[in-house]
Design a protein around this nucleic acid. Structure first.
Lengths: 247, 247
DNA sequence: CGGGGTGTTGACGCATGTCAAGTATGGTGG
DNA sequence: CCACCATACTTGACATGCGTCAACACCCCG
């Protein structure tokens, strides 16, 4: 398991390193990026529909979610973001935000000015490509969620989401073996999978009694990875996680 | 209503022009892009999950859809693409495709080599940004579809989808006033909204009897734009269509 | 020790799925 | 020009997964 990075800049660098080998010049530029950190509490809005941000934020610690609310007041969670993610990278090229982003745990965030990112992209096309790629991976996750919500039953949806979070946390060193911290309430889980909180509760009970998950507080353990993967029809291809070639 | 563009290159140029004013140098470079056109019939696979394409394709004529199939064999249509779109732009930076793309009408496609696009992006960062932006808009559409499928009832979902297609066709000059050609079968409509074909049929009947749509073959007319927009809770913000400032 | 957020449970209803059988429709070959 | 077929669309009867409502239990934090 990797050690935690020390600065937001290190986090960005480590993330991009997982895509391709950075040149020392590129690494230098990232090291010099000005990133303002800020702490926020649980359930705080970070950005809102209609905003026109002049900066992006990197999650250093904590979880956030992207969500939209229908005219009827129903909330869909569109994405869950974990440390290392830049949830509103899209705002670089889309002026007006079409989503809300809120914290679902206390968070430490690192803010980066758009103007700095523009410069970075212009000078280092490979970094531009890497950031572009980052947005494409999130796009791919949206597509899988569409399949999940559109075609699978509640049981599979929840299993699928749990598998996804497991792997994404593993990729940033926040899960080891079978367990990880998943600080998501049942209501949030429900909004992310398009079911009701009551039904989410029943599905979780079914998963527990089928031996696919066990939970203690928000610590989740997956005793049988194969089985929950099957239950969720989970195939990690869509996460586009580069295979680490062991040294 | 605009006149139809004459070449794939003109189409690309017109599309990018709608985002920002191209310099003559940029326009020149686009004009010189090598694009191979090919015609295909209805229901042909263009690319498939697992492919590693070395080119992207532009839709010159016709409609395509992006879709994924669950382990149970259920198909979710993730996106519908119309002339002017480049449905697999993502393959530029994600090696392995996580989706299938098929024609839903006969199509004329223009294929562009990745290597040519890489060069273009490196030389003209503004064009890179415009293409990036293009993928971000599609991403935004995925998010709205998630809200649509996750939180709205079947009636609203279908109304919403119809509104979206209407506006996107209008943006490329393929819809005028209230009518447009929507060559999508009820089965496809069902797969795109996460309902069954039988239910899609009943919803369409309801929309007709409520006076929100009228159809003749695949020609759809929306007699009351306000009303169907309300029924679908449709707010076009997420399409990020630049407002044309009338001269 | 009190109170708000979270999790749990049961009874009941409904939107949507499923199954099964039709009826257009449009293209093709004789 | 008609017979035929495949594909698309319709319709009705019935089944069910999930939603809704309404309590209640838990538990951390102040």
């Amino acid at each position: 398991m990797m050690t935690a990075p020390h600065s937001p800049n290190d986090m960005m660098i480590r993330k991009l390193e997982s895509i391709f080998k950075l040149t020392s010049e590129e690494e230098q530029a990232l090291q010099e990026l000005s990133i303002q950190t800020r702490d926020i509490g649980t359930n705080q809005d970070i950005v809102r529909v209609g905003d026109q941000p002049s900066q992006c934020f990197l999650i250093v610690e904590g979880f956030t979610c992207v969500h939209k609310v229908s005219a009827e007041g129903k909330r869909q969670i569109i994405a869950i973001h974990v440390p290392g993610d830049v949830p509103d990278l899209q705002s670089l090229h889309l002026q007006v935000l079409d989503i809300n982003i809120s914290s679902i745990t206390p968070c430490k965030l690192g803010f980066i000015k758009h103007t700095d990112l523009y410069q970075l992209c212009e000078r280092y096309p490979r970094l531009a490509a890497a950031l572009w790629r980052e947005t494409l991976v999130h796009s791919s996750i949206f597509r899988e969620w569409l399949l999940n919500i559109g075609q699978r039953d509640a049981y599979s949806r929840v299993a699928h989401l749990i598998c996804e979070i497991m792997l994404r946390l593993k990729a940033v060193g926040l899960a080891d073996g079978q367990s990880f911290e998943m600080p998501v309430t049942q209501a949030e889980l429900a909004d992310a999978t398009g079911i009701t909180p009551v039904h989410a509760n029943r599905v979780l009970q079914a998963l527990r009694s089928d031996g696919l998950i066990s939970t203690h507080k928000h610590q989740v353990t997956l005793p049988d990875w194969e089985k929950i993967q099957q239950a969720g029809e989970f195939d990690p291809l869509y996460l586009h996680i580069k295979q680490e070639v062991p040294a």
